[in-house]
Amino acid sequence: MEKKFVYADNAATTRISQSVLDAMMPYLTDQFGNPSGVYSIGRRARRAVETARQKAAQALGCEPSEICFTSGGTESDNWALAGTYRALAPEGKKRIISTVIEHPAVLNTLEYLKKQGADIVLLPVAENGRIDPEEVRKAITPDTALVSVMAANNETGVIQPVDEISRICEEHEVLFHTDAVQAVPHLRFDLAHSGISLLSLSGHKLHAPKGTGILYIKNGLSVSQILFGGSQESGLRPGTENTAAIAGLGKALEDLFPDHEDRNARISALRDKLADGLLKNEGVIMNGDRENMLPGHCSISVKGADGEKLLLMLDLKGICASAGSACTSGDAEPSHVLKAMGVKNDYINGSVRFTLDEYNTEEDVDYITETFAEILKKAL
């Protein structure tokens, strides 16, 4: 089989789109001013930042004043959790409720806050990878500061019942944060009419550059800053703005939704074809709830296989995939997400995640399925 290049790890990062690159270029070249500058080149940079803020707000269904630019999903998650805890702990609200399947950016922040005196509750998920909203209701106490549940899991693509959980939080007057890093490229959010208090997203998951993100903070919330310096981002997040990257993020968010449904339908069809092709191989199972899954995710496990070995063999054939979260690659421990879902031991180490987007083709899917079948004959 002729070797080609197929990128199927879009949950790890995406390529920058041409329209995003075009939006960025002026601020990487002639329009290099500092957005805090009072001279014309600085004012043009400031306009670019504020235009991007307006585009982000329109895409997310919120006010521009509720958009804070960050360096990415990790910073946004850290800020949402630590900032809320610092603001509310003095009032005696020290409980934070989350789940066992969160991204390390959330779980490791919670571990840090636990050492600071926080009462951390991590709720389980069912075998399909979804949390029961009633478990959230049961866990809420008068001293609960925050509930944080990811909108969709980065390893399996399983979509969580965020709307229902946010309504429960509203009923109990508890703040609700969602890590929507994986979800925003595919799911529509109308934050002005939701119970979501804080939302994190990352630019490089939606064809914007790495190193840029957003924390949505609903107007009126008291969230402490975790960085200190200048007065940027309304005094909440100091540091000279990365004008080019922010302009790119704004453009990427603007580009998301004009053909949102058609794009998702096309990606879902490719994913279904891929999943069906992979599941024809003996000993292969699909992880997660296929009925409640992001369109591009296809997480599988192979009985008795070594996932890292499979990835290396795929790479030799020009196929980029992953074993789970890109932020934990190289970790010898089995996936905490698959463990939480009860995936059997003889499958858990043989996990491979393929994630497709609008740049993938049917030819890509055919190449992956044919190549994977050949690899399994050698690897098992």
Rank of each mutant, 00 (worst) to 15 (best):
V20I: 09
Y27Q: 00
L28E: 13
N34C: 08
Y39L: 15
I41D: 11
A45H: 02
A48H: 01
V49C: 01
Q58L: 13
I67G: 01
T70I: 09
S71K: 06
G72E: 03
G73N: 06
N78D: 02
W79Q: 03
Y85Q: 12
Y85C: 13
A89D: 02
R95M: 12
R95Y: 10
S98T: 07
S98L: 06
L110K: 01
L113E: 10
Q116G: 06
G117S: 09
L123G: 12
V125T: 07
N128R: 12
R130V: 04
E134S: 14
E134C: 11
T141A: 15
V147G: 07
A152Q: 07
A152P: 09
E171H: 04
E171T: 04
L175V: 00
H177Q: 02
H177I: 02
T178D: 03
Q182M: 14
H193K: 13
G195D: 08
S197I: 14
L201W: 04
G203T: 05
H207G: 11
K210C: 08
Y216E: 06
Y216R: 11
I217K: 12
N219P: 05
S222N: 14
S231Q: 11
L236Q: 04
T240R: 14
N242P: 11
A244S: 15
A245R: 14
G250K: 05
G250T: 03
D255Y: 02
D255W: 02
D259N: 12
H260T: 00
R266P: 01
I267M: 01
L270I: 08
D276W: 05
G277L: 09
D289A: 12
L294C: 10
K303R: 02
G304P: 04
G307M: 08
M313D: 08
D315G: 02
C320S: 12
A323K: 12
G324S: 05
S329I: 00
E333H: 10
E333F: 10
G342E: 07
G342R: 11
F354P: 05
L356E: 00
D364H: 13
D364V: 12
Y367L: 03
I368W: 03
